[in-house]
Design a protein around this nucleic acid. Sequence first.
DNA 1: CTATTAAACAAACACTTGTTTGTTTAGTCA
DNA 2: TGACTAAACAAACAAGTGTTTGTTTAATAG
Lengths: 192, 192
Amino acid sequence: MDAKATRSNSRNDALLDAAAELFAAQGFKATSMRDIAKAVGMLPGSIYYHFASKDDLLLAIYEAGVDQITATFAAAIAPLDDPWLRLEAGMAALIRAITDASSTTSVIFKVEPSDVPKYEAELIAFRDKFEALFRTLVDELPLHAWVDPHLLRLMLLGAANHAQLWYSPKGRFAADEIGQHFARLVQAPIGR
Amino acid sequence: MDAKATRSNSRNDALLDAAAELFAAQGFKATSMRDIAKAVGMLPGSIYYHFASKDDLLLAIYEAGVDQITATFAAAIAPLDDPWLRLEAGMAALIRAITDASSTTSVIFKVEPSDVPKYEAELIAFRDKFEALFRTLVDELPLHAWVDPHLLRLMLLGAANHAQLWYSPKGRFAADEIGQHFARLVQAPIGR
DNA sequence: CTATTAAACAAACACTTGTTTGTTTAGTCA
DNA sequence: TGACTAAACAAACAAGTGTTTGTTTAATAG
């Protein structure tokens, strides 16, 4: 272990973690550099030794978040063969990532790329990396001809995204169960 | 017609309309009083003759928006009897309202009550007025026992809400068709 | 015509924003 | 020990925020 790098990385990671938690909770614009500085116990200006700008800070979070969610998502669906079971597992993993306030993954779904004009293209590219994974999950479903896979994907993604506004760990359902339930609502006939 | 009132109301309405369009397009915090002033052609300070604060301006928009969407929504489902057809019509009306950028109704779904701490409770109350209407629509559906109406409602609402981020009038589907499609995705078996 | 008021302007207010600068402290390495 | 550098501090900067104030214009009503 390199002592210098370790200490440096630990402060660097502390910044990333604190910023991610604040961005996820309050949004990008609503979080000030002073908020972040206070969270890690340093002065606002000191952050600029580690990151060139607030925008760059978000970019780093986004990248880490996408890497993490793609890995989690892929791992969740990998052991399953049935397309519908894979969708259920994928949705469960997705809702988990979105509603985990202490994770960098939730930032991806909370902060819109348009909030950061400087890196809008890069952020969209990061998002696409995950959404491509999700798209394949939907595209492998055996669907009736009248179903539009594009709209189905957007519906599931929208429902998941929205969970971040109402989900509570104290609620009646766990994040996993919500994701699984959503997948089943579009899978099976729900009326009688 | 009262000339004085007419002129006064026209300026007042112009402010409401311009602010609503900007709030819907950019969000509440991202829209400045200077933006709104420029849109109606007056100086920032002049707005305060008509509205006491930026928060009050939003409150007025929210109230008008809720009145409008509840009326539109109720009118859309009123002539129908079948619960599933009522859901389709309701979802169509909802997506229409959410994606209509020139309407005050979209503000309700774009601006989160937490963005305006001073009136958070009031804004939530306004939202609830509409969501109660939507809740009855879901609650009258004949559902299998395994289906949770609560989660079904949140899924539909989330999918609709999300449409504001990706909907384009130049897209493959009209707002109506999207709403109807969403309703059918949870209604009929979509796999084969 | 005159008194009143609606409606706007022009300018500043106090505050917050992201960021920059110059300096100091503490630890590393030859 | 002495040179170097990582890492932070303290303080200010320019720009933008919502809002307030005093004043002017223009229309209305008695």
